[in-house]
Design a protein around this nucleic acid. Structure first.
Lengths: 198, 198, 198, 198
DNA sequence: ATGTAAGCGAGACGGTACGTCCAGTCTTTGG
DNA sequence: CCAAAGACTGGACGTACCGTCTCGCTTACAT
């Protein structure tokens, strides 16, 4: 019944905290790609082996470090109007990803290099945010504002996909106005209905 | 009128070709991240300096190498129906990016690490494809199939953004059916119009 | 009182031995100038960094490697006759330096390029041999064979200087007969005493 | 009999001068070992090939450059007293070699690496100075100051050898006083004659 | 006078080594 | 038994020169 503690020294919470803090600190100064395990260990005052023991690669460390920040920033708008909610949600997400610099893009890039990381990233990072967004969507559907026949997954990607694209390629702006245009376009569609009336 | 040739030995076309070929060959075996300048030089039978002389980083080499392939694959559908054209365009693009593995994602990631590369990438890689897509869009607008008031840039990103997102995060499928759903959703919009009729 | 052992892994004796052995091996085949740190590392099966960590330049490595050989070859003649002793000492030294090829000359050249190395070289290489020679000299002085008023340092350089000069410029032979002539000339002097007697 | 002039453009005196001047200039700042053909070409505003065409290695260039300086500095003392002459000659030589920094030592070192250079160096550099010294020596012999039976070559090396040794290893001073002691020791010898009288 | 042969500067080329950095592993001391 | 410290092999980095090889251009002899 008593949880048997293993012999010897146990995992040091202090070290873990130091590593994540150091990683966050370094991420503020340079892209993940330019950060090295050695630099993290040095900054954290920790042996390299301690990092290798608990994380498979620096991307996982960065994800852990980033998660600590992120969880505090999740917020789901609920104004009673679906379109408003989605615009607001998109705007908040834009702000968050833009402010955290290239982190999001770098995680996405890492997904392609390390399929195992991709799984963890989707589960730990994308899924919670997607669930929150799905909730907003579902609310609007239930209120009858959105066609209940829509493919939820596709719609979610049509909400965030354009933002992701611009975030990464940097070929277009990301602001409140663009967010509104995107959501509005998504609601109304691009079909020329007036011509059909003819 | 006569182009003044610089003094000294001129750039070796043979070396350039060998470098790009070697790079393409390596890219088929491993992600850009794991390719080294030394490996390219070795494979191409070329001095490292020759690479450094003409390209700022391996990302530029890869982009040049990739461009040679890509230009042969551009194709703009024109079936007479805008929606069909866009579905086909999206499907072709999906195929192309999926088949070239992680290249596209890696270029996007590099954009965040090297803003100078981002400019080149957009100009040389994205722009031509975007122009082709814009053409398809414009044709549909002229035919009266699409509302002429739409924000072209936003629409283009709503066509390709969801694909980009899925391509990178790998959280959803990319196939003909999904392409059709996406374009259909974009045309019709998600708004519940029947409820409004009430 | 107890020597405090530093933390972490200690210097690998095995690597050190491998490096010095490899260096000696290479020195038998080519002049120090043509030897590279990379070649030593390769031959020793050792990382370059391990060499850089413990030696400032390849000259120091070579000196260490050479010292191992040299110490076994020191031998101080003591026949009871000072002139014989010095001839023998000079002959032995000639043989040793000639057989070790250009090593000695290369160390001397390095002294001019790296003053820090010069200090080490004099301390570790020249001093022990000079002390041994000085001993031979002192014995002869005590036996009354050599004028006790002579400048020991100058005499030592007059014993070995001519050999060093020929060794380096190669303009004259270095053998037993020459050694005898040099020492004899040093003992008798070149002054024409018969003429003074007139 | 008539020297046949070759066709085509002739060797450029201007380039040769520029190369030697540049080399001298560089030699004042750093040891020969650290000077590169490229640096000489750059400094002289000359193509590398022009250097390779006329000199086998940078040592030859340096020797040529140095010779231009040296020839102006040869001077043979003739005071009527052999010992004085030799002291003065030794002192002048010390000054000259000390002032030209490590050049002399570097040439000596190069002799060991390049036997062909050794021949040229002895012929062009050492021989003229040795002839001049031999002349001084011969004069003193003819005047009856020096024993005519001495081995001229050995004596010449006993005059300059100690200086060469100290010059290279830097283990002792080189000044007027030391020069006098060396020559005096050479004249008188080190044998304890008073003890022999007993 | 004119062709042609060499020399020239510039500078790109394939290489080799530099000295540094990091990856990932291994070894030692110490809590 | 784990953590830090830190040395280890291995390999790529980006740079500097090597000696060679075109280039376009400039002499200057030989025809």
């Amino acid at each position: 019944m008593t949880e048997l503690k293993s012999r010897g020294r146990h995992r040091s919470d202090e070290s873990e905290r130091a590593i994540l803090t150091a990683t966050l600190h370094l991420l503020k100064q340079q892209p993940l790609r330019d950060i090295t395990i050695e630099a993290i260990a040095r900054e954290a005052g920790v042996g390299k082996v301690t990092i290798y023991r608990w994380w498979p690669s620096k991307a996982y460390v960065a994800l852990d470090a980033f998660s600590k920040t992120m969880n505090k920033t999740i917020s789901v708008p609920d104004t009673g109007n679906g379109e408003n909610d989605l615009v607001e949600l998109l705007r908040l997400t834009m702000n968050f990803y833009s402010s955290t610099g290239q982190m999001f893009s770098e995680f996405l890039a890492e997904c392609k290099n390390d399929p195992q990381f991709a799984i963890v990233f989707r589960e730990r990072f994308l899924k919670p945010r997607r669930e929150a967004s799905r909730e907003v969507l579902e609310r609007a559907i239930n209120r009858g504002e959105i066609d209940s026949a829509v493919d939820r997954e596709v719609v979610l990607d049509m909400i965030f996909g354009p933002m992701v694209f611009r975030l990464m390629a940097g070929h277009g702006p990301l602001n409140r106005k663009e967010a509104a245009t995107m959501i509005s376009t998504l609601f109304r569609g691009i079909e020329n209905r007036s011509s059909k009336a003819r």
